[in-house]
Amino acid sequence: MPSETPQAEVGPTGCPHRSGPHSAKGSLEKGSPEDKEAKEPLWIRPDAPSRCTWQLGRPASESPHHHTAPAKSPKILPDILKKIGDTPMVRINKIGKKFGLKCELLAKCEFFNAGGSVKDRISLRMIEDAERDGTLKPGDTIIEPTSGNTGIGLALAAAVRGYRCIIVMPEKMSSEKVDVLRALGAEIVRTPTNARFDSPESHVGVAWRLKNEIPNSHILDQYRNASNPLAHYDTTADEILQQCDGKLDMLVASVGTGGTITGIARKLKEKCPGCRIIGVDPEGSILAEPEELNQTEQTTYEVEGIGYDFIPTVLDRTVVDKWFKSNDEEAFTFARMLIAQEGLLCGGSAGSTVAVAVKAAQELQEGQRCVVILPDSVRNYMTKFLSDRWMLQKGFLKEEDLTEKKPWWWHLRVQELGLSAPLTVLPTITCGHTIEILREKGFDQAPVVDEAGVILGMVTLGNMLSSLLAGKVQPSDQVGKVIYKQFKQIRLTDTLGRLSHILEMDHFALVV
C-alpha cells in the first residue's frame, strides 16, 4: 500500500459497493488471473465517493441489488447463522422517566444476534452475496479491517462455511474481542490505534497488504460494500417497522461504517417519512454534520465500534436529520445504567446512543415513540467499562463513588512517597548505550525526554532486548525507535489509591 493515498477510480455505471474482489474501477472485475494482476490496485480507499443510485421515491424494481426479506425461524435451526436477525424490541421503562421523557422509549437489542452484535447481519450478508456472485469459493481466505464486531461476525460465518479468516484490528480494541476471535479460529493482526486510516500501518493498510500477498484472499470491505446497508434496509428496518406496527417518530443510532443508519433510515424514509433520524458520533470522530460539531482538541476516545477519521463510502449522511456528539463518560455511564436499571447487557456504544436519545427525544410528546439501536453486548468489555477499576483509572468514576473498604494508605498523596527525580535518556542515544546505562543503574525503564525536557515516551529494558533479539533494531539504532509513546501519567497530588489502580493494569506510571 502506498504512503500517498491515490484516488480510487470510478467506473461508468453500476453501484460502487459490489461485493467481491475490487477492480481499479471499484466494481467486480472478471477475466484471467493475468488481467486481474495487471488491473487490481494495491488498495482502494474506504472513503471513495459513493456511486449508489438510491433515491427517495425511486421504484424498488430499479435497484441493481439482490434483495432479501426477513424469514421466520424454524423450530430447529440448521446452523447458528440462522440465529442472525429477528432481534427483540424491548421497552426501556426507567431511564426515559428518569430523564423526563414523555414518549415511549424502545430498544432494538442487536446483541441477541448469534455473534453478539449488529455486525453479524452485514457479515453474513457480505459472505452470502460474495458466494452468490462467485467471488468467494471453498478454501478462500477472508481478510477484514475491523474494530472487532464485524470480525467476530465474519469469523463466526467463516467457521460454519469453512473459510480461512484473518482479522486486522487496532490495538485499542478489547482483549475479549481478541479472545472470541481466536476461539472462532480467526487469525488476528493488531495495528497502532493512532495510525491514520490511509497510513500503511493502519488496520485498513495492513489488511490490503495481506490481501496482495495471500492468494485467493478477499477483503469484503464493510466500508464500501453495498451488502452492509442492504442488510439493514432489507431486514433490520423491516423488523423495526413490523415490531412497531409502522408507528415510530424517531430513530437514534450510533454511527461507525454508517451501514446501520443508512440502511434503516432509507427504508424508514420510504415507509415512515415523518420519522426523524438521529445520528450519534463520538467526540474525536469526524462523521457528524455540520462540520463545526467535529471541532475539538480530542483525537482519541475509548468507546469502541463507532466514529472514524474518514467518511466511509457506505455512509449516506443525507438521510440523517440531526447529529449529536457523545463523550466517553456519558457513554459508559449510560451503558452501566442500562445494565443495572433495565437488565440490558449492552456495550458502550449503546450507552452513547441512549445518552443522546434522552436529549433528542425531549421534543417528542406522549403517545409518540423513539427507537434506539443497541449494537453489541457487554461480553466484549468485561475488563473495560464493566470494571470499576478501569473506570477509575480512566477518570470516568471517582473514588467516592465506590463504597468498598480501602487499605490505610489509600488516600495518601503520591508526594508522600518522597520520590527522587528519575533517570532520563535522550532519544538520540543508541539502544546499546541505553541498555548499558539501565543495567549500570539497576533500572528496568526510563523516560525519554528531548533537550527541552519534554517527555516523549518510555523505554524499557525488556522491550529493547526483545527488539534486538527479533532483529527489529540494532544496538547502533537510536533509542527513539523503541519508545512507548502511550503511558499513564500521575500527579504528586493524586492518591496512592489512584496509582494502585493504574499499576494493576500497566507496568509503570510516570509522575509529573
Rank of each mutant, 00 (worst) to 15 (best):
147 S>H: 06
2 P>N: 14
67 H>V: 15
37 E>I: 08
65 H>K: 05
57 G>C: 10
211 K>W: 07
269 K>Y: 15
91 R>C: 01
168 V>I: 09
206 V>N: 04
31 G>F: 12
253 A>D: 07
239 E>G: 10
267 K>G: 10
125 R>I: 01
245 D>S: 09
4 E>Y: 12
65 H>S: 01
62 E>K: 13
195 A>F: 01
179 D>V: 06
209 R>L: 08
246 G>D: 10
64 P>T: 01
51 R>S: 15
208 W>L: 08
152 I>R: 01
86 D>G: 14
43 W>Y: 12
94 K>L: 11
183 A>C: 13
259 G>T: 01
94 K>A: 08
164 R>F: 05
212 N>T: 11
17 H>A: 08
152 I>G: 04
138 P>N: 11
183 A>Q: 14
152 I>F: 01
247 K>I: 11
66 H>T: 05
274 G>C: 01
46 P>K: 01
105 L>E: 01
56 L>R: 12
261 I>L: 07
180 V>A: 13
17 H>I: 15
105 L>I: 11
68 T>E: 13
216 N>S: 12
182 R>V: 01
25 K>W: 03
93 N>Y: 06
114 A>V: 08
148 G>I: 01
96 G>C: 13
187 E>L: 07
48 A>L: 05
87 T>Y: 01
193 T>Y: 09
255 V>C: 15
144 E>Y: 04
198 D>K: 11
176 E>C: 03
179 D>W: 01
270 E>N: 04
77 L>Y: 06
37 E>T: 01
136 L>E: 05
2 P>Y: 07
190 R>T: 08
138 P>F: 10
211 K>D: 01
212 N>Y: 04
274 G>S: 06
53 T>N: 14
130 A>K: 01
268 L>T: 12
223 Y>S: 01
22 H>I: 06
90 V>L: 04
9 E>R: 07
148 G>T: 12
268 L>G: 01
4 E>H: 15
22 H>G: 06
105 L>Q: 03
135 T>Y: 14
22 H>D: 08
12 P>A: 01
261 I>E: 05
193 T>S: 01
274 G>W: 13
62 E>G: 15
21 P>C: 15
150 T>A: 01
44 I>G: 01
103 C>G: 10
242 Q>L: 11
222 Q>A: 01
38 A>T: 13
155 A>D: 04
15 C>V: 07
187 E>G: 01
233 Y>W: 14
122 I>A: 05
183 A>D: 01
201 E>M: 05
221 D>C: 07
133 D>A: 06
44 I>R: 14
155 A>L: 07
149 N>F: 01
166 I>S: 07
3 S>I: 01
240 I>P: 01
178 V>K: 11
16 P>V: 01
97 K>A: 01
197 F>G: 06
80 I>C: 15
93 N>M: 01
190 R>V: 08
3 S>L: 10
260 T>Y: 01
255 V>T: 10
205 G>W: 13
101 L>S: 01
144 E>L: 04
111 F>Q: 04
8 A>V: 13
36 K>L: 13
113 N>V: 07
165 C>P: 01
211 K>V: 14
225 N>P: 01
165 C>I: 04
137 K>F: 10
208 W>Y: 13
149 N>L: 05
34 E>N: 01
142 I>M: 08
72 K>S: 01
241 L>K: 05
217 S>V: 01
196 R>C: 08
156 L>W: 15
187 E>F: 01
140 D>N: 01
174 S>P: 05
225 N>Y: 01
261 I>P: 01
150 T>N: 01
240 I>Y: 06
11 G>R: 14
274 G>M: 15
223 Y>C: 11
130 A>P: 01
57 G>V: 09
152 I>A: 03
3 S>C: 09
74 P>S: 10
128 E>A: 01
211 K>H: 01
270 E>T: 06
17 H>E: 09
230 L>T: 15
272 C>G: 08
274 G>T: 01
260 T>R: 12
219 I>W: 06
104 E>V: 15
233 Y>R: 01
245 D>V: 08
109 C>N: 08
48 A>T: 14
40 E>W: 10
247 K>M: 12
16 P>T: 06
254 S>I: 06
94 K>V: 01
171 E>L: 03
210 L>Y: 01
106 L>W: 11
182 R>E: 07
234 D>K: 11
272 C>N: 01
177 K>I: 01
87 T>P: 11
73 S>F: 11
49 P>C: 10
32 S>G: 06
62 E>P: 15
198 D>V: 01
186 A>H: 01
58 R>I: 08
261 I>V: 13
248 L>M: 12
163 Y>T: 01
17 H>G: 14
14 G>S: 06
97 K>T: 06
258 G>I: 04
164 R>G: 01
29 E>W: 13
212 N>S: 12
243 Q>A: 08
7 Q>W: 05
244 C>N: 01
177 K>D: 01
170 P>C: 01
213 E>H: 01
15 C>D: 13
159 A>P: 04
